[in-house]
Amino acid sequence: MLERAEIIRKEYLRHDKKFPHVWCPGCGNGIVMGALLRGIHGLNLSKDEVVLASGIGCSGRMPTYIDFNTIHTTHGRALTFCTGIKLAKPELTVITVMGDGDATAIGGNHFIHAARRNIDLTAIIINNSTYGMTGGQYSPTTPFGSKSTTSVYGHVEHAFSIAELAVTAGASFVARGTVYHAVHLEEMIQQAIRTRGFSVVEVISNCHVQHGRRNKLGGAVEMITSYKENAVLVGKAAKMSPEELEGKFTIGVLANVKKPISTEQYQRVIVEARKNSHKNSSEKEKNGIKRYEE
């Protein structure tokens, strides 16, 4: 019998693609990819019905390695492509992997509107607080005061909290996890994929090569250990005082609401519109041109 790790490697990784992958040693992207694959494997989805999309950046390279229908789009626009794919083929399970800059800077508008629209997509946002691939510039999640290659004197702006942003924007399901809590992350991803409607999983991840190094946060081990120390489960955090929560962040499910899903609502629109058009034009139809003759 094959172990799960073997199944993941054998079934889900692309064999004609060169491994090891492009990410730096110890990069959290690989851990997220593992959690994602285990999560999908646990859901018993066929590979043909899964679409994995990405934007640009380190996270953007993930789909290349995975044997789904994969699409590596333009910077920040992955959700827009996914919107088109999902609307064209609603039966597909469409998952997007984005980075923090990809999703909330250049793709910020698409992100909040996908959430508002509540389209049935899953967005996994790997938040490493920097633009890693381009050399460590500050991103929308770079903490105030942090150093980056474009904030050498310390960052003067404030960071987005991606998961809270998604909650406010109206996503059906929002969760946060870290690369330390990989089993928890796998569960969050599974829940997100299972949720109908827009679901977001923000993953706190490490870029020790860019962000960590410049801010003396240590290497991969130290950064990932800090997530273990600073992550508090949502339920537990509710019972903690603000002082106790200083410097910590919550993980777990932040929002899980039932509300109409645009993709499904549109199917109703189609049924309704078809009824009307049949009523209006008894025998004419088929290709739309003839409608103009009335």
Partner: peptide, 13 residues
């Protein structure tokens, strides 16, 4: 170690 290996390089049996 298996689930945290970013490189899918560990198998435990």
């Amino acid at each position: 170690c298996e689930i945290h290996c970013p490189d899918f390089a560990i198998t435990i049996k």
